[in-house]
């Protein structure tokens, strides 16, 4: 009878206790991060190699379409990608199809470029710029594919596109080498479908959206993909950097284990409670 009570109690445990256990698990691993190397997946390697093969002053478009809700995954990805672009000396522009992302991505780009050793990136507009918020991504991609300055006109600071030093010599998306879509939404098919054919595409989705990317990886329409925070961690590992991915990944790792352990525990409790009921 005593045993039955324990298992039944375990099944009916107060959800606040579960929340507290998960909270403590996350908090401990965030407060005391340690290095745990990841297996580098081929999609992450693909994106890294594509960016790494860029030449100085090659132009890259970063499509940043996320809001604060997916910040934990998309911010480490965006930071890692920008750091790599700076390391390669590539020029880059950001564009947002999400209203919050206009400010969030600019703030992150300012933070990463200002803290970089490469002084060329310290002045906004020289090696990078933010083209602002676009309401309709398909229309924007098609427009930028034909004529950049017609489609966007001004950057976030109101400077006409054709006066930005970073975009000198760039008339349309055809003059870009690569686009990287950092997104929690289904914007990837738009870039795949409407981009100029010469523009290679990289993808940085949240974990739940990654399944969509494998289709395009198989068809070689994507050069690579970094999946959520885990992908950012792999990318940082390839770069030899310690960024947000490294800080957050252990909390994710051990949360996965915790969830599986508790699923097992829940099932064990159910079996034992039934068995005890049968014996009674």
């Amino acid at each position: 009878m005593q045993q039955q009570n324990i298992w039944t109690k375990l099944i009916r445990v107060d959800r606040r206790i579960l929340y507290l256990i998960l909270f403590l698990n996350i908090a401990v691993f965030l407060m005391f991060p340690f290095k745990m190397p990841a297996t580098i997946t081929s999609p992450a390697r693909g994106l890294y190699d594509a960016v790494d093969s860029l030449q100085p002053n090659d132009l890259v478009m970063i499509s940043s379409n996320w809001s604060a809700s997916t910040m934990a995954e998309n911010q480490p990805q965006l930071e890692a990608i920008i750091k790599h672009l700076i390391r390669k000396g590539a020029r880059f522009t950001l564009v947002s199809n999400e209203a919050q992302s206009r400010d969030l991505s600019k703030r992150i780009a300012v933070g990463v470029t200002q803290s970089s050793d490469n002084a060329e990136y310290h002045t906004y507009g020289q090696k990078w710029a933010h083209l602002g918020f676009v309401t309709d991504l398909i229309a924007a991609i098609r427009g930028m594919g034909s004529n950049l300055s017609e489609a966007v006109k001004q950057d976030v600071e109101g400077t006409p596109i054709d006066q930005l030093p970073v975009l000198q010599g760039a008339k349309s998306l055809k003059d870009y080498k690569m686009v990287i879509d950092v997104t929690p939404s289904g914007t990837l098919p738009y870039w795949i479908s409407y981009r100029p054919p010469n523009l290679i595409v990289g993808y940085a989705p949240t974990s739940v959206m990654a399944a969509e990317g494998f289709t395009y990886l198989d068809s070689k329409q994507l050069v690579g993909m970094i999946t959520g925070l885990k992908g950012a961690h792999e990318y940082e590992q390839l770069m030899g950097e310690t960024g947000l991915g490294h800080k957050f990944i252990n909390a994710i790792s051990f949360s996965h284990v915790l969830i599986l352990l508790f699923i097992g525990l829940g099932n064990l409790a159910m079996i034992m409670a039934r068995r005890a009921q049968g014996e009674a």
């Binding site: 959800r15 998960l22 809700s69 919050q100 969830i259 829940g266």
Partner: peptide, 23 residues
């Protein structure tokens, strides 16, 4: 930004609780 991030993060707690009870 903080409230938006916090709201979305709460899903992890619901998933944890739901997985324990329902799976």
């Amino acid at each position: 930004v903080q409230m938006d991030a916090a709201m979305f993060s709460l899903i992890a707690f619901y998933i944890f609780s739901a997985a324990y009870r329902a799976f």
